[in-house]
Amino acid sequence: MNNPIIKLIDVTKRFADNLVLKGISLEVNAGEVVCIIGGSGSGKSTLLRCIDFLEHYDSGEVLVQGRMIGYGADPHGNFIRLPERVVQQDLANVVMVFQQFNLWPHKTVLENVMAPLRLVAGMDRAQARDKALAVLGKVGMAHKADAYPATLSGGQQQRVAIARALGREPKIMLFDEPTSALDPELVGEVLKVMRALADEGMTMVVVTHEMGFAAQVADKVVFLANGLIEEQGPPSALFGAPQSPLLQSFLATWTERNGGVTGA
């Protein structure tokens, strides 16, 4: 029996009277790459953000490495919100990479990567610097260590953001449309880094519109529609023989706009 490293059980989330996730159950095994696809507003980001508790789900369970995220029982057995530090501890192996990079603009590339190593991992300056330069090297950005984010292209910024995440030595990386804010010619360099991570066995959950990436790299593709998992399976099945009419029309629209699924 392999235990899934991430497990969602009947997760729901509402914003005011808008029920955005209507009961999501999903398993991700260690080392797997799971791509989440679906139309705008279908709940992809919300689902991803529930995993690392950037959104607080309303019911169901999110389990990461067997631990329930965000909620627990007090000594009397009552269901409670866990303190933030506990939540962060439970999520120590999970990091998110955002569509808008979210680098800190007042810090250089090196400082962006070093700061969490100093403040969270407690490394001394020299250790943090070595580690930061190593992860920056890994994404091909060591030569820009002293640049400020604003002077970099979107693709470069996203690679720095990935390096910052890698500094925390995560076991699980969540990507929310990491290439959607990029000019088309810059998408490739980021996908290449992500592919390399996948090859190294990183567990990845990726919300993406890059169907080529999903087709080639994903172990499993999840199609979300109206807050529910409409269909999931290996990419060959989802892209080759979609069952759900919603997925069929989603893919048809996508193909119309972009050409075949095998590109990228």
Partner: peptide, 23 residues
């Protein structure tokens, strides 16, 4: 301030105080 910067800091393990102080 774009909220994403704060989110990224929390996500990577900063305490609320560290988010305030360093971001």
């Amino acid at each position: 301030l774009p909220p994403g910067q704060t989110e990224a800091a929390w996500d990577i393990g900063y305490t609320r105080w560290q988010v305030l102080r360093y971001v």
